[in-house]
Design a protein around this nucleic acid. Structure first.
Lengths: 338, 338
DNA sequence: TTGAAAGCGCTAACAC
DNA sequence: GTGTTAGCGCTTTCAA
């Protein structure tokens, strides 16, 4: 459009394009002070803003990171995104986020679009899918990206081959779930129900597997929307269909909030009659009454690590950060009463 | 880099650049089926991904929206960002977010960088600053953007001149605060404390003004970090310094959560001894015990509207959507007891 | 120290 | 229908 560009500046300042560029692009190329002044002056007056598209085209770097998440407004993801912003901002990077809306089938297309935008770094934070075909296509796409000198970071995506040239932020969902389950078991709970999100998602499948490792086949698994309302609904069903259950474990804190709400509504004492656990330890987990026992994930920290790894990946090697999940025992769990 | 580009495709398919472009860019220009097939085939094989930078350079449109927020991980903002994604995704737009970290001084620079990225739409969701100089510079920058055929959406930014050519999503913070205050007053509360975020921010100043409109000069205003911990700390100070206070109103729900936590810790009954109110009505406000009375803002809806307006703005006119704040009375407020 | 010019990847006239 | 070519705005050789 009518946008002022380098040419405008160069003309008004009476210098060549090259000189204007050298002054304005922060090059350390020597330019006589007088000319430099003149260019700066004109640029300021005309409010010149360089065109990152043109620059990116030339340099092959966009100073942009693309982040694929399930849902930006879910505290689980927004916590990580916050961490990504923390280090991206300092490094002069822009952050572009895209929602899969928890529909892993959309991932391939999204990655494509992010690649089209020529992001330098791709962070995959949404849960993967337990489907080899899908994984295969994804790896192919990512590999092309990496071979282009770009950088990929996988957050909790162990389905991608171990030798794939990407950095990783790992956390062991299965282990974390086991810790939660052992905690419940230690309190005497034998009849436990899990309120689980979509089990096609690897992260969910892992968590459920962890619960089953400890609690065995007797475990009741109820699939639900990964939201407060999903937890609320599922809890209703559990109370009706499995009245002997003494503990309800959710695969996400929000679902646990819904569970707590339903129990409160039904007049069921927590943890007196039923214990409740969450997963992820989002900020509010501490504010329910009773406060939620949950598996803590350092979300913001994970985002930071991811972005740091991404940046480093641009320089060459990739690396791996392992995050220890940690059981946080609060008031929502207690010994079997009854 | 070694990226496959249009030229590669054209050569491998044995056609001209133009033909390849016509097939791959979704142009409706006629191309013989055989050639079209060949191009598509090669593109598929080589996993061709068009370069959005080059395209953007040419078309002057990037299919990207830039969003300026205080903090992506704050549910207030992430709710709006979620709404923005909802409509951006459908429209084929990418969303780039930037944090001001609630430091309005950073805004100018951020807008500049977003302009450099050549976003088509700029959504300003972070609170403005009550400072004419700052506003003036901001308007100048935004005006240049708009004159470039781009689109600006202001969310709750009434400091920007009424005749400024931008769309707006407005909500009346002051009125909302008045409604909260009237509710408290109606319950008999006379000694009220407000836990407020940074009052240099216009949104906060407006909210405090609304409280003062109703409750008068006797209102105790305590400034705090706009976080749970900020509320927690402020509440401690209020209990110590103003023991006669019977209601505590926060300018954000998270702060109210902190207040509730502190009161619980001190054994103060809510709402029996002290009533508590929040602001914004983030999802979790319903899950505290007692549930939080607060001024509801339809965050996601606001985000959607903003993006819709932004898209429409590209076509020319700008528009305005007024959002009605709405008092939601829950369990955290009650008549003065004592 | 400065300027002219090539070219990043792509689209849109314009010719054939 | 298809191909050639001129740029979009910028950086960076290469000459001067």
């Amino acid at each position: 459009m009518g946008s002022v560009n380098l040419k405008t500046i160069a003309e008004k300042a009476g210098v060549s394009l090259a000189t204007a560029s050298r002054v304005l692009s922060g090059s350390d190329y020597p330019v006589k002070d007088e000319l430099r002044e003149r260019v700066l002056q004109v640029a300021q007056e005309l409010d010149y803003v360089p065109n990152a598209n043109a620059r990116g085209l030339l340099r092959g770097r966009s100073q942009t990171v693309g982040v694929l998440v399930g849902d930006v407004s879910d505290p689980f993801f927004s916590g990580m995104i916050g961490g990504i912003h923390d280090v991206a901002g300092k490094a002069g990077y822009m952050v572009t986020t895209v929602n899969t809306y928890r529909e892993p089938g959309a991932e391939l297309d999204i990655v494509r679009r992010l690649r089209a935008q020529r992001v330098d770094i791709l962070i995959l934070a949404a849960s993967g899918l337990a489907d080899p075909i899908h994984t295969e296509s994804m790896q192919r796409s990512l590999r092309a990206f990496v071979e282009d000198g770009k950088s990929v970071v996988l957050i909790g995506r162990h389905e991608v081959a171990g030798d794939f040239p990407a950095s990783r932020v790992e956390f062991d969902n299965r282990l974390a779930a086991r810790e939660v389950a052992e905690h419940l078991q230690g309190l005497g709970h034998r009849e436990v129900a899990v309120v689980a999100g979509n089990s096609r998602l690897l992260s969910i499948a892992d968590r459920v597997a962890g619960f089953r490792d400890v609690l065995g086949e007797s475990l009741v698994v109820v699939e639900a929307e990964p939201t407060r309302d999903g937890g609320y609904e599922a809890c209703g069903a559990i109370l009706d269909d499995h009245p002997r259950v003494t503990a309800i474990a959710a695969t996400a804190d929000q679902m646990a909030f819904g569970v707590l709400a339903r129990l409160r509504e039904r007049g069921v004492q927590v943890p007196g009659q039923v214990s409740v656990t969450g997963f992820n330890d989002i900020a509010f987990a501490v504010d329910t009454v009773p406060a939620l026992t949950t598996a803590h994930l350092p979300l913001r920290e994970m985002g930071r690590s991811a972005m740091e790894l991404g940046l480093r990946g641009l320089e060459g090697g990739h690396d791996r950060v392992d995050t220890k999940p940690q059981l946080v025992v609060r008031g929502s769990t207690g010994p079997v009463g009854r």
